[in-house]
Design a binder for these strands. Structure first.
Length: 282
DNA sequence: CATATGTCCTGAGAGC
DNA sequence: TGCTCTCAGGACATAT
């Protein structure tokens, strides 16, 4: 389930594509239900073949390839999507292959692959106004790494939702998912069920610093590969942050922050929440 | 408007 | 053993 650290790792991993020219676009044969790709593959080919990849950006949990035609190819991995420069985990879940070449007459060939086991991911080509609407149209909050105490209070402070639920709302802030919400709230010392509207200035300060600390550390470890083994970096290597989770997925085990509390699992909005009753008082 | 719930999708694991 | 059922949770659509 790629969240900010995994998607950031993908962006860094596909950096060898920078400056390359798109030559081919294919959707591999697949007996599974095809993923959503917009526009249709033929149109996508016409619009992208010959275009140069100028930059790679992360937009919340999305990866964006920006081309010299002022168009933007937006990958949304959702649960199990991956961007790869090497062989995929298997062939049957390969969803899109983009062949690129380095600039120059006999530029080196390379394949950028979109692989997605569950097929909930999407790929979309946007023009600049559509991309602008995605970034600034109010559908996506500020990036989680940019959150300050006052920005947190501004984006979440009036909400009557539980803080854990609000952290997952990409309209409020972009990039946090179920796993990192749990780890961030632990370090902030805030109970996941606490209503946003009741949080104090000290809580927002703690949340702001915990957010940066957790996400930066997770990026350093190239994200989390859970027990299903799905998440991989662009070279098909596992992340390592799962070995440093303090509460996520650790129900009944000892909290890695205080080494005293026993990790609890509750359900909020039909999603699992892990927390330490010792570090995070109700 | 804000918040809550249902839907999509596949494969792992539980339970019989 | 082999089947059926439940669950995992991204974002979006629909309901309250």
């Amino acid at each position: 389930m790629p969240e900010l650290p995994e998607v950031e790792t993908m962006c860094r991993g596909i950096a060898p594509c920078l400056g390359t020219t798109i030559r081919t676009i294919e959707r591999p044969r697949c007996h599974l239900k095809p993923i959503q790709i917009r526009p249709l593959i033929g149109t996508l080919r016409k619009k992208l073949c010959g275009a140069q990849i100028q930059s790679v950006e992360r937009l919340g949990k999305r990866v964006v390839l920006c081309t010299d035609r002022n168009t933007f190819l937006v990958f949304e991995p959702r649960m199990t999507g991956l961007l790869l420069l090497s062989d995929p985990p298997n062939a049957e879940h390969l969803r899109l292959r983009i062949g690129v070449t380095k600039s120059g007459r006999r530029g080196q060939r390379m394949d950028l692959l979109f692989w997605d086991r569950r097929g909930l991911g999407t790929v979309q080509l946007l023009n600049s106004s559509a991309y602008d609407a995605l970034r600034h149209g109010g559908k996506l909050g500020p990036d989680a790494l940019q959150m300050t105490p006052s920005l947190y209070r501004q984006q979440l402070g009036q909400s009557r939702q539980a803080i854990k639920v609000a952290l997952l709302d990409q309209k409020r802030l972009a990039g946090i998912g179920n796993l990192y919400a749990a780890e961030i709230l632990l370090l902030a010392g805030i109970h996941p069920g606490q209503k946003c509207i009741h949080l104090t200035d000290q809580d927002w300060r703690n949340l702001s610093s915990a957010t940066r600390r957790v996400l930066r550390q997770a990026i350093r470890y190239e994200g989390s590969t859970l027990s299903d083994g799905t998440y991989r970096n662009a070279l098909n290597k596992k992340g390592r942050y799962q070995n440093h989770h303090r509460v996520y997925g650790r129900e009944g085990k000892t909290c890695r922050r205080c080494r005293v509390g026993q990790v609890q699992r509750i359900v909020q909005c039909q999603r699992a929440t892990f927390y330490c009753p010792y570090c995070q008082e109700a």
